[in-house]
Nucleic acid binder design. Structure first.
Lengths: 202, 202, 202, 202
DNA sequence: AATGAATGAGAGTTCATTCAT
DNA sequence: CATGAATGAACTCTCATTCAT
């Protein structure tokens, strides 16, 4: 049983494709690039997917389903509004760091899909966004800080999604530290003092 | 002498092109799209620019020069580190709102250039980034909040540049209000209370 | 032993293929179309035939052998030149109506074969044509109507073979009636009166 | 003024294309074949037409418009039903002989178009068919030969359109003689005596 | 200054066919 | 006997760009 079953092979293709899309962008990437990167023939790729756009769709769809599920699970363990928001942030950043290519493709190629595929992904995006908006809204309520909560949610997403432009998960700043910094920045702002290390234990 | 001079015509072309690039993306936009949008013949366009990539370069280069100059001028009026940072934010958001297309092209097509053109733009980007990093660094110093300041700068840029994904400057939230909210969020965090309206007048 | 023997299976394939070729044309039909239509896998088809062109060849070859044999047998019962010609016409039209797909493929895809296969089919075509030419020639001799007899034969074939463009055997005009009308038209022309119904009985 | 204007060039392309389509068939013909046959680059062709199917459409549409106009004009000179029908036949055959390629493409590629283009051509085809059906109907009335007149019209079209399968206009039988023979066959049948040669001179 | 015409290179996709299992 | 997987070759069409006028 040397030949991998269909799904496994498709998974390989999607993983490789995500890397190439992340590196070159969806439009500049040619099917021939993907053929080369996957080691398959051009026609062979079409055995697994009906076209280039479907590749992008599959990458985005799977990735979104996973972040959404992961976030839901992470948030469910929270004990307070603040705690839940922080868990959301930690999860998002950690997931992004672990799936850089896919998440970059999700963030950067948001409008490279068309028609029904675009609509599908946008529906997922809305779900994910609403999740975060609920959390920021709750935090603001708790702190009697009443603002338009969708602005805060978008601000946070911007902060977090922008990282594909600069962050290297293998660099000196580990994802957990980045997540914590983001959480602190977003909750308490730039002017808040660095939390004492002890505060974690107490 | 009904025909506009060269530079004026080029300006028109760049403005129109920025809109089309913003709407469709750089790669999906064809020279024929630009020919149609500008009302010029395809060959006519080539009298003003040597190629499609140069259009992108010119849009990005001019736009960057202007934000940088504008930011420098805005910041120079600041009376404290906090004030200077807030002025930077206000300026960036206001500029973005006034030049949505160009700024989206700047943010989204950061890697659509190649070679020397890319290097040129990246140099400008670095200058602009360093400007903000200096400001966040100063604010942190003032507040004895010592963190890696480039993370904060990137976070703020992410927050602000992400707006091309959701913000409508002509909608209910005017750019000034958005800028203020961003400034407050970034400086004091989500948990800080809404500033009293009186603070505006006083 | 539920699986049909090789020849039976081949027959099914040819019958299905003829329908698809008739409906879509030889060139636009893909092997995948045939795989779908026959319910077999793509590779499975290749167990029965060496390629797409062979399918067309087999359909044409068998069909031609049958019309030729049928025509010979029908004509052999004739009692006069006129009678023999009429029998040929009746047989051709009836056969066409009973094997619409195959006959359309024969008529319409006459030049979709290449090389030896084309030559083979053309030889059969010539044989069939010569048969009819002999008959029209005899009729003309009998009526002292001397013309180039191959023109008449081609005219009649045109009249009869064209029916795949318009005739529906399941419609109001049954094949026998069509054949009779063609026979009358061809023998006596448009201006001849309709034969009295009585003439059939007497 | 060495370069031919757009329309003239398009005309050349259509003429050449008709020949190639007639020789190889629409589907087997590749755009590269047409590029070679016209002496233009592949991309150059697309300056004149939006795609391969449009070439087929234009060839069929123009050809149909011309036969229809020519037939109408020819028929209008007729002095009796018989005369008008004969004129129609003569015109059709002569036109076919003069425009063999286009007429073969019209006859043989009747269903290679799709969608609106197909509908358009089918509308023209109906018009032309109705023209002939009116004529055969009138002739039958005059001769008190009452049959379903559309069968006769289809028979005649079959007779005439089939010629692309065998007739060579440059061969021993000139188009006028072929037309006359068809007219005689169709009006009076195979059994009618050859018209006296004198009738030609007098 | 401006353009219609033209093109080389390459894009995504399809196809008939093969082969290991 | 049957098939999923795979592929080389080729297809239609598009693109950024050039050039004669």
């Amino acid at each position: 049983m040397t030949s991998a079953p269909f799904d496994e092979r498709l998974e390989q293709i999607l993983a490789t494709t995500a890397k190439v899309f992340a590196a070159k962008g969806f439009h500049p990437t040619t099917m021939r690039d993907l053929s080369r990167a996957t080691g398959m023939s051009l026609a062979g790729l079409y055995h697994y997917i009906p076209g280039k756009e479907e590749l992008l769709y599959l990458i985005q769809e799977r990735c979104f389903q996973r972040v959404i599920a992961g976030a839901a699970s992470a948030v469910s363990l929270g004990t307070s509004a603040d705690d839940r928001l922080e868990r959301f942030i930690r999860h998002h950043v950690a997931f992004f760091a672990r799936h850089m290519s896919e998440m970059k493709v999700l963030s950067h190629e948001a409008n490279s899909l068309t028609g029904k595929r675009l609509a599908d992904i946008n529906a997922l995006k809305r779900r994910y966004f609403e999740m975060l908006r609920g959390l920021t809204s709750d935090v603001e309520s708790d702190h009697a800080a009443h603002h338009d909560p969708h602005v805060a949610a978008y601000a946070l997403f911007g902060m977090m999604n922008w990282i594909y432009n600069w962050y290297n998960p293998a660099g000196p700043l580990p994802p957990e530290a980045l997540a914590e910094r983001f959480a602190q920045l977003f909750m308490f702002g730039l002017t808040s003092p660095a939390p004492s290390t002890a505060s974690h234990g107490g």
